[in-house]
Amino acid sequence: MHKFANPTFFMKIANGIFPWATGISILCFAVGLPLALIISPPDYQQGDTVRIMYVHVPAAWMGLMVYGVMAASSAVFLIWRHTIAHLVARASAPIGAVFTALCLVTGMLWGEPMWGTWWVWDARLTSMLILFFLYLGYIALGDSFEDQERGDKAAALLALVGSVNLPIVHFSVEWWNTLHQPAIFGLKGFSVNAAMLQPLLLMVAAFQFYYIAVLVIRLRAELLSAKIRTARFNLAAAE
């Protein structure tokens, strides 16, 4: 298991996955977007605003999932001190932050015509906003330490502590009265008609593989930056 911790080996696999992830993501967008915007029917109550869901729900799921990846790899970094795990978390944060922001904004664009308000402070919306702030905090914290290693550890710890928010976001609509509707995916399956489920799942897949592809690009950049730091250090030591 720990051979994955070797950056060279890890990147060999990541680079192998990269063209596939890129291809699948483009394919899913190419099929999913026409379905979402043109072919799928309007909803019996929401009319065409239901199309916002095909961006909102994938963004929300990915916002949560990417934070889960960040927290898990931060735990691996804190316990086993594998640098690659920390780089995965670091590279994921901006992607997850954008997913979460997209979820919040598209939610507002749906809320105004349907609920009659852009925003309410119910448990779901508030906990999702906290998730966004956690991402921002993680990004800011990683760069705010003089000592690189201490900054890395502090950021990893924040990612881990923030994971307490994930079940709160997910279960908020069940535990408390909220304005936000319950999850569309429950024990009884999906409560979404097949004609709408198709574009939704395609967009979820498109977002998912987009994340993997962009993560690999960001990992390449992160590893190069680490190499640059070492090279600079050696250069300075040689002088």
Binding site: P42, D43, Y44, Q45, T117, P182, S191, V192
Partner: peptide
């Protein structure tokens, strides 16, 4: 002072609802 609509988690085309 304010009335907000609450939507449920059911999504379907009008024909299916009919």
């Amino acid at each position: 002072n304010d009335v907000l609509a609450k939507h449920d988690e059911t999504y379907m085309p009008p024909e299916v609802a009919d």
